[in-house]
Design a protein around this nucleic acid. Structure first.
Length: 341
DNA sequence: TAGGCGTGGCT
DNA sequence: TAGCCAAGCCT
C-alpha cells in the first residue's frame, strides 16, 4: 500500500464528503452515540426524522436514562431492529449509573456498553475524542477489500479479523491523529457515495491509484462473502378486537423474538388458536391477508376483525383508546393495518 | 459461530 | 421480481 492513503481520504472528505448531517459538526458523545446506534444497518434517509424526534424528547443521556422503556420504544417504532432501542435505554442507564453520566473516551471501554460493538465504539471514540480506532462496517469492508484486492471469504471469522488488522494499519499516522474524525467520516463516505456495491464511480475515487481491485479490472469482485442467509416463511393470525369507541386490544410482545417489547395485536400461530380466543358468538369479519417482509422471513399476516362489547377482555393485554394506540410502539405492519382499518 | 433481528429503497 | 443492501450487535 502506498503511503498517503489516509491523507487522500481525509483531503477528499473535506470537499466531497458529507459534512452537514444533523449528527455532524458536534463532538457531543450523546448525539454521536445516538446517531451511530440508529444508523446500524439503517440508511441515513430513514434515520433523519427519528434522530430529531429523539433529541427533542430526550435532550441528554440523563433524560433518556430516566424515561420509561415504553416511551423509548414508542419513539423507535418503525425504525426496526428494536433490540437497539432496548440496549440504547440500558446503555443510557449504565452511562449514568456506572460512568458518572459521561461516556467513556476509548473504544475499548465503550464496547463494554450494551448495543455498542467494536465498530460503533470506534466511530464514537474517533469522532468525539480523536482516538486512533478503526471502524469496519459494510461501507469500509467494501472499500478496504477492493483497495487491497482482499479476496478471502469474510464469512470466516479469521478472515474478518485479518481485515480488522488491515483497517488499523491504514489509519492516519499518530502524527496526524487530529485527522481521525475526518478520516473515519471519509472512509464511510467513500463507501456510501463512490465505492458502491455495483457500478462504483472509480473515476471519481480519490484512492483509485491505491486500488488493487481496480487494477485487476474487477472492483465488483470484492468483498467475497459466501454466507447467504436462509429465508423462510411463517403465517401469523392477528386478532383485531375493537370496541365501538375505537379502542383496540393490544399485547406486549415477548422478549426475545420479533418485535420484542412492542405492543401488537394478539398473535396466534393458527386460525384455530385465534378462534379459541374469541368471545362466543362473536361476529367475525374476514380481512385480506398481506405479506410483510423481514430480512430472514416472509410473514404472512392474517388479520381477523371482531367487534366486542366494552367489558370484554382478552387473555392478556390491555385496551388502548382511539387517541392512545397511535402513540405506542407498534410494528410497522400493525400500525399501517390499524391506520387503514 | 451461525442465526436472529426490521424496514425500506434499489435494481 | 426476488434478492441485495444499509454507519452491526447479541446470543
Amino acid at each position: 500500500m502506498p503511503a498517503g492513503f489516509a491523507g487522500r481520504v481525509v483531503r477528499w472528505q473535506r470537499t466531497h464528503g458529507r459534512n452537514t448531517l444533523p449528527w455532524q459538526n458536534t463532538r457531543d458523545p450523546y448525539r454521536v452515540w445516538l446517531s451511530e446506534i440508529m444508523l446500524q444497518q439503517t440508511q441515513v434517509a430513514a434515520v433523519l426524522g427519528y434522530y430529531e424526534r429523539f433529541l427533542a424528547r430526550f435532550p441528554d443521556v440523563q433524560a433518556l436514562a430516566a424515561a420509561p422503556l415504553d416511551d423509548v420504544l414508542a419513539l423507535w417504532s418503525g425504525l426496526g431492529y428494536y433490540s437497539r432501542a432496548r440496549n440504547l435505554h440500558r446503555c443510557a442507564q449504565d452511562v449514568v449509573e456506572k460512568h458518572g453520566g459521561a461516556f467513556p473516551r476509548t473504544a475499548e471501554v465503550l464496547a463494554t456498553l450494551p448495543g455498542i460493538g467494536p465498530s460503533t465504539a470506534a466511530a464514537i471514540s474517533s469522532f468525539c475524542f480523536g482516538e486512533r480506532a478503526a471502524i469496519l462496517d459494510g461501507n469500509v469492508k467494501r472499500v478496504l477489500t477492493r483497495v487491497l484486492a482482499y479476496g478471502d471469504d469474510l464469512a470466516l471469522g479469521a478472515n474478518e479479523r485479518r481485515l480488522w488488522d488491515h483497517a488499523r494499519e491504514l489509519l492516519p499516522r499518530r502524527e496526524l491523529q487530529e485527522n481521525m474524525p475526518r478520516y473515519t467520516q471519509g472512509i464511510m463516505d467513500l463507501g456510501a457515495t463512490i465505492c458502491l456495491p455495483r457500478n462504483p464511480s472509480c473515476l471519481l475515487c480519490p484512492v483509485q491509484e491505491d486500488c488493487a481491485a481496480t487494477k485487476q479490472g474487477r472492483p465488483e469482485g470484492f468483498p467475497v462473502k459466501t454466507k447467504k442467509l436462509k429465508r423462510s416463511a411463517e403465517s401469523l393470525w392477528l386478532l383485531h378486537a375493537r370496541a365501538d369507541d375505537g379502542s383496540v386490544w393490544l399485547q406486549k410482545r415477548p422478549t426475545p423474538g420479533v418485535w420484542a417489547g412492542l405492543y401488537c395485536l394478539p398473535v396466534f400461530a393458527s386460525r384455530d388458536a385465534l378462534d379459541a380466543a374469541l368471545p362466543s358468538g362473536a361476529n367475525v369479519r374476514e380481512v385480506e391477508p398481506f405479506v410483510h417482509v423481514l430480512t430472514h422471513k416472509d410473514l404472512h399476516l392474517h388479520p381477523v376483525q371482531v367487534e366486542v362489547a366494552a367489558g370484554w377482555r382478552g387473555r392478556e393485554g390491555q385496551w388502548f383508546g382511539a387517541g392512545e394506540w397511535p402513540q405506542v410502539g407498534l410494528p410497522s405492519p400493525v400500525r399501517k393495518f390499524l391506520e387503514r382499518s
